[in-house]
């Protein structure tokens, strides 16, 4: 995938149509997502912003195939992932998830973690997978930490290794669920730069859930603001700041304007969510 291609020509287009998800804990129906539709073009960085517990993660889990949807359909490059006849998508390496709390296997070294995907999918032999994993980690600046366990490295490094573990499978879509939530501002900045660099290199579609509005605008091509539970698309803000972006971008006039626009839309929902006081769903 070359960066010269226009976004619309790239693979990894997600089409979310009228998706509804109803949870049924203890006999009481809870609507987490209600008739939510979104079109995400291939190679687009799509940021999902909304109040805590609004059902953003539910949407991501439906795409990844971690649970079923009640109504609607989700297509990836015009192929059905899940829909009325097939409520739960098959899990697969075309959609790689980077988890909120990090899910590198703590019992495998960074290199073993990265090599795991190609090894079990048998796209590479065990040895080739290890050497490719080593190369890719080195490329991400983790060359000195190949034999370390995730518990021995900083959260920033672990998160970076997790993204490498996802990318080694050549996914069409990278699904990130607030991956930098617990990080300090300085580490976040480094993580953002490295994610943008990865994006510029691979052109993978990115579906990124966040609470951080500045992060959303800095990274995204589009920012989708969703309502408080049940989750619906409220507003889409296009970010027309040219790439490559650097941290100076954040002090530009355009950036500030976009931030104000997004903030206004989100704030309303945040107030509603706070007053409802509902607990986050898994």
């Amino acid at each position: 995938m070359s960066k010269n291609m226009k976004i619309s020509e790239r693979l990894g287009a997600l089409s979310i149509k009228n998706v509804t998800k109803v949870y049924d804990p203890e006999g009481v129906n809870v609507k987490a997502v209600d008739n939510c539709s979104m079109e995400i073009e291939g190679g687009e960085v799509c940021m999902i912003v909304g109040p805590s517990g609004c059902g953003k993660t539910t949407l991501l889990n439906s795409i990844a195939g971690f649970h079923s949807i009640t109504e609607g359909s989700i297509h990836l490059d015009n192929e059905l992932l899940c829909g009325p006849e097939k409520p739960i998508a098959a899990q697969g390496a075309d959609r790689m998830v980077v988890f909120q709390h990090g899910a590198l296997f703590p019992w495998k070294t960074l290199q073993e973690n990265v090599a795991y995907g190609p090894t079990v999918q048998k796209t590479l032999g065990a040895k080739e997978a290890m050497s490719k994993a080593g190369d890719m980690l080195a490329e991400a600046g983790l060359g000195n930490f190949l034999t370390r366990y995730p518990g021995e490295v900083s959260s920033g490094m672990a998160r970076r290794a997790e993204i490498v573990r996802a990318l080694i499978n050549d996914p069409k879509v990278l699904l990130l669920d607030e991956p930098y939530r617990a990080m300090d501002a300085l580490t976040k900045q480094i993580m953002h730069e490295s994610l943008l660099e990865t994006y510029d290199r691979t052109g993978v579609t990115i579906f990124f859930i966040t609470h951080d509005l500045e992060e959303a605008i800095f990274l995204g091509d589009k920012v989708h603001i969703v309502t408080t539970r049940p989750c619906q698309l409220k507003k889409t803000v296009e970010v027309k700041i040219p790439r490559p972006r650097s941290y100076e971008t954040q002090s530009s006039e355009d950036f500030r304007k976009l931030l104000a626009e997004v903030n206004e839309a989100v704030h309303e929902e945040a107030v509603k969510a706070f007053q409802a006081g509902e607990r986050e769903l898994a």
Binding site: G65, M96, V97, F99, A103, Y116, V120
Partner: peptide
Amino acid sequence: YFRAAGCLG
């Protein structure tokens, strides 16, 4: 970890 293993194929 189960989910991660699942999407890694």
